[in-house]
Amino acid sequence: MSKLSLLDIIGPIMLGPSSSHTAGAVRIGNLAREIVAEEIEEVKFHLHGSFKETYQGHGTDKALLGGLLGLSTADPKIKNAFELAEEKGIEFDYLPVELDGVHPNTAKLEIKDRTDKTTTIVASSVGGGSVVIKQIDGINVDLNGEYHTLITLHQDKPGVMAKISRVLEEDELNIAFMKVLREYKGALATAVIELDHNLTTKKLRAIKEIAEIKEARIIKPVK
């Protein structure tokens, strides 16, 4: 674990009542918004464990939705998240779910955007407002939203990671953390690369131009 800041002890400023069920839920929504990066049309929140049991009393429902609308953990407008979503024509629903082997405070978000693409995100609120994105579209990622994160989907061939690293090096970008996941044996792999600084649009383009890369996106940190 990274070293504790005094702002972890006094703070954050947030809407109550619970750092894990409210503030954490907002951050899950914020990150999901970053990941989808398109106008949202419809969202289904599948709630697991303690999220399922207490989501209304803790305002987890409004917090998830408000976060998805881009509101911050301290924004009083979160209380009106339902109305705000309706104004924007976003459909939303909350459903119970049983997920295997996950933290008690976990939600699975099924988000349909205006391009008709559906993104599925599994995320947990792990305490004190910290969150972890566990899966994006069935791929394990383990993102905590504290760094600029580059996520790629690429052909699993030798040398791809070296090509990516070379592009990053040119910009003197420090890699804070890197993980490569092979979900589709031998065919496709996903790399999750946490960076100290943001990647320029140009660099992102350079990465996308690598022949083996199918998809690359950058996820900004959320506060």
Partner: peptide, 15 residues
């Protein structure tokens, strides 16, 4: 105020 979903500072927690 915390239970009413209004802004507070978590010190050390919201509870």
């Amino acid at each position: 105020v915390n239970a009413a979903m209004e802004p507070i500072v978590a010190v050390p927690t919201a509870g």
